[in-house]
C-alpha cells in the first residue's frame, strides 16, 4: 500500500511539473506575445499619454505670452514647497501699480508630481509636460525658471 501511494505521488509530482513546463513552453513558440520594449532605441515612436505627469511647465503662446497673474494659488497648494513665486509691481498706462509675475521658481528635485498646483491654478497657466528624462549631473540644474525671458501676461487674463 505504501509503495503504491509512493509511486502515485511521484507520478502526480512529475505531471504537475510538466503542466507548468507546458505553460512556459507554450510561450516559446509564441514569440509575438513578448512585450519587452527596447528603451532607449524606441524613443522616436514612444508615446506617453497626454495626462502623464513629467514636470510642471508654463504654457506660452506664439507671442511669448503666458496666463500667470502671480496669485500664488499654486504655491499655497503645493505640499512640499516646490514652487516659489516672486512678484513685482508693474505700472499700468493709467499710472496705477499692479502686481505681476516676476519669476516662477520651480524645484524639480522636490516635486512629487501630485498635480495639485495644476488643479489649483485659476487661469490654467501651468500644466504637466510629458518629459521624463530628468537626470542631470548637477542638482542646481533642476532648479527651473518657468516663465520664459521677456514673456508677459496675456491681455485680458485677470
Amino acid at each position: 500500500m505504501f509503495i503504491k501511494e509512493y509511486i502515485s505521488d511521484v507520478f502526480k509530482a512529475v505531471s504537475s511539473l510538466l503542466k507548468g513546463m507546458k505553460t512556459t513552453g507554450s510561450y516559446f513558440v509564441r514569440p509575438k506575445e513578448i512585450i519587452t520594449q527596447q528603451y532607449p532605441d524606441n524613443r522616436a515612436h514612444m508615446k506617453l499619454p497626454e495626462r502623464f505627469r513629467g514636470e510642471v511647465v508654463m504654457i506660452h503662446d506664439e507671442n511669448n505670452e503666458h496666463a500667470c497673474t502671480g496669485c500664488t494659488a499654486c504655491e499655497l497648494a503645493c505640499p512640499n514647497a516646490t514652487i516659489k513665486i516672486i512678484t513685482k509691481f508693474d505700472t499700468t498706462p493709467e499710472g496705477k501699480k499692479k502686481k505681476a509675475l516676476d519669476t516662477f521658481v520651480y524645484h524639480l528635485e522636490l516635486c512629487t508630481m501630485c498635480n495639485l498646483c495644476v488643479e489649483a491654478c485659476p487661469t490654467s497657466a501651468i500644466k504637466m509636460a510629458q518629459t521624463f528624462e530628468h537626470s542631470v549631473y548637477d542638482r542646481n540644474r533642476l532648479l527651473k525658471k518657468l516663465n520664459q525671458p521677456g514673456s508677459k501676461l496675456r491681455a485680458g487674463v485677470e
Binding site: P49, R51, F52, R53, C114, N115
Partner: peptide, 15 residues
C-alpha cells in the same frame, strides 16, 4: 492608470 490618472504608482487621483 497612467492614461487616466497620469502616474503609474503614486497616483493621487482621489480628492
Amino acid at each position: 492608470m497612467e492614461e487616466t490618472c497620469g502616474t503609474r504608482l503614486t497616483m493621487n487621483y482621489m480628492v
